Amino acid sequence: MALEIEVCVDTLEAALVAEANGATRIELCGRLDLDGTTPDEAFIQAALTQLQIPIHVMIRPRGGDFVYSEAEFAEMEQAIDRCKARGVPGVVLGALTESGTLDLTHILTLAARAKPEMLVVVHKCIDFTPDPAAAFDQLLEHADLIDYVLTSGGKPTAKEGLPVLQYMINQGRDRIKVMAAGKITKDNLNELSDALGAPAYHGRLIV
Rank of each mutant, 00 (worst) to 15 (best):
M1T: 03
A2N: 11
L3C: 06
L3W: 09
E6H: 08
E6G: 02
T11Y: 02
L12H: 06
E13A: 06
A14F: 09
V17F: 06
V17Q: 14
A18M: 08
A18R: 03
A18L: 12
E19K: 12
A20C: 08
A20L: 01
N21H: 14
G22N: 09
R25E: 12
R25L: 10
C29N: 15
G30L: 05
G30D: 11
G30I: 10
L34H: 05
T38K: 11
P39F: 10
D40C: 09
E41I: 03
A42Y: 10
A42I: 11
A42C: 09
A42E: 13
F43A: 01
A47F: 12
A47K: 06
T49L: 13
L51D: 02
Q52P: 10
I53P: 12
H56C: 06
H56S: 15
I59D: 04
R60W: 02
P61S: 03
E70I: 07
E72M: 03
E72W: 12
E72G: 05
M76I: 06
E77P: 01
Q78K: 13
I80N: 02
I80R: 00
C83V: 02
K84V: 04
P89I: 09
G90I: 07
V92I: 14
L93S: 07
L96H: 04
L96S: 00
S99L: 09
L102Y: 10
L104K: 07
H106V: 04
I107F: 00
T109L: 10
T109Y: 04
L110D: 01
P116N: 00
P116I: 03
P116K: 04
M118R: 05
L119I: 07
V120G: 00
V121M: 13
K124D: 11
K124Y: 04
C125T: 12
D127N: 03
D127V: 05
P130R: 07
D131P: 07
P132G: 06
L140R: 00
E141Y: 05
A143D: 13
D147E: 02
Y148A: 07
V149F: 03
T151V: 07
S152R: 07
G153F: 12
G153D: 10
A158M: 08
A158L: 13
P163N: 10
L165C: 13
Q166R: 06
Y167E: 11
Y167M: 12
I169S: 11
R173I: 15
R175Y: 01
M179S: 12
G182F: 01
T185M: 11
D187I: 03
D187A: 15
D187T: 14
D187Y: 10
L189T: 10
N190F: 03
N190C: 02
E191I: 03
L192S: 05
L192A: 00
R204H: 00
R204D: 13
L205D: 12
L205S: 14
I206Y: 00
V207P: 06
